[in-house]
Nucleic acid binder design. Structure first.
Length: 374
RNA sequence: GGGCGGAUAGCCAAGCGGUCAACGGCGGCAGACUGUAAAUCUGCUCUCUCUGAGUUCGGGGGUUCGAAUCCCUCUCCGCCCA
């Protein structure tokens, strides 16, 4: 069985996903290795030491460099990265949003211009499936259209229509490739529909007919108010099947994770722990801190006194501030490490709380802590 | 001793009669970042009773309606000739 739900408390769920390369306890947070590496020098050993069970790669960026054939030649993305655990590849659907200035959408697919050299890159559902099969991740995402926020409702409707159409094509192409490769790869569908409940419902129902082993919610955390994101999760909760993992793409802040878990989400990924780590912001049990702030110059405390990561065992805020200001790469690595550890620890605590039927009180206490510095 | 060339806000450095409180960079301060074109981006950084006013461009003096910008002089720095 791919997904087994083991505990639930109201809508919050905990379970386990089983792949050929290992299991993933849920709710899970997946660090992002867009180009096959967690930025700022976090190694596979680092990830394992903090309890990470699955990481992400990106189809678009890995296609541009080094190319899926190179990755396939190494035996797949997991071997290539020396991670060797479960991996997931995003499809390039987010690049439809993030690279909006250098792409053209049609019903056939999306024509990108390479940010590397200006080459025209045509992504169709079939092409994306071929690339994701060559990359060989354990979970692969259907090619979707992620519209911006705000957007005209017509634009969102069209994105839902294309996303469904492309999902069908992805499923068909995936089935053919799967038969040929004999590998185990699980294709997830992605629900679109912006902040419109009726479009979300339509998108989810159309995708559910295709019976994907997992369902993702895309098109959120693109600029809409946080409450809208929570509302959409809450709205979709009874529509999505309970026996399949739900993946809220691109989310989020520690608070977002708690709010979304409460509304039935099982999987997350987000650049925040690593990007903010590189930009000098640390997540702590007492809220975010900006380590370059002058007030930490002679602060001899760790980033988070409640954290047991090695950064918090060894280094003071004053030292971290100094190496950050000095531009030493160690500062970015240490903050990235701490932030990823903080996220993993938070997810571990969330899972324990759900399994012990005390998630509601855990969430309340955690949110109270995050507000200390706010 | 003589001849050139310099001295601009914390530092470097543009400006060379009005549109200059003075380009730009560094440093400093603050903020942003949510399926990563991000070790990135944005704002502020002389003083004040701050949508206005006051003092600045080595010191002093002068020319002019008006000077960081022109003239005289002093001080200091660099290069060259003795």
């Amino acid at each position: 069985m791919f997904f087994a739900l083991t505990h639930s408390e109201n809508n919050a769920r905990s379970g386990v996903i089983t792949t050929a390369r290992g299991t993933i306890q849920t709710p899970a947070f997946m660090p992002i290795a867009t180009q096959g590496a967690i930025k700022a020098g976090i190694t596979p050993d680092d990830l394992r030491s903090m309890g990470v069970e699955i990481i992400l790669g990106n189809t678009f960026h890995l296609h541009l460099r080094p190319g899926e054939q190179v990755v396939a030649d190494f035996g797949g993305i997991q071997e290539f990265c020396a991670w060797q655990g479960p991996m997931l590849t995003d499809s390039g659907g987010f690049q439809v949003f993030s690279l909006a200035k250098i792409r053209k959408i049609s019903d056939e697919g999306v024509e990108f211009r390479s940010p590397l050299n200006g080459d025209k890159i045509l992504f169709t559902p079939e092409k994306v499936m071929q690339i994701e099969h060559d990359l060989g991740a354990d979970i692969i995402m259907a090619f979707d259209e992620c519209p911006p926020h705000p957007a005209e409702k017509k634009e969102v409707e069209s994105a839902v229509r294309r996303t469904t159409d492309w999902a069908k094509k992805c499923k068909t192409a995936h089935a053919v490739l799967l038969k040929k490769s004999g590998k185990e790869q699980h294709l997830f569908g992605i629900v679109q529909g912006g902040v419109h409940p009726e479009l979300r419902k339509q998108s989810a129902e159309e995708l559910l007919e295709l019976d994907f082993p997992g369902m993702a919610i895309g098109g959120l955390s693109v600029g809409e108010p946080n409450q809208d994101m929570y509302d959409i999760c809450e709205y979709l909760n009874p529509i999505l099947p309970t026996d399949k993992p739900r993946y809220l793409m691109g989310v989020g802040t520690p608070r977002d994770l708690l709010e979304a878990v409460e509304r039935g989400i099982d999987m997350f990924d987000c650049v925040l722990p690593t990007r903010n780590g590189r930009h000098g912001k640390a997540f702590t049990s007492g809220g975010d801190i900006n380590i370059v702030s002058a007030k930490y110059a002679v602060d001899k405390n760790p980033l988070d006194e409640n954290c047991s990561c090695f950064v918090c065992q060894k280094f003071t805020r004053g030292y971290l501030r100094h190496i950050f200001k000095a531009g030493e790469i160690l500062g970015m690595r240490l903050l990235s490490h701490h932030n990823l550890y903080f996220y993993q620890n938070l997810m571990q605590n969330i899972r324990s709380a759900i399994r012990e039927n005390r998630f509601a009180e855990f969430k309340k206490a955690a949110l109270y802590g995050f507000s200390e510095n706010a």
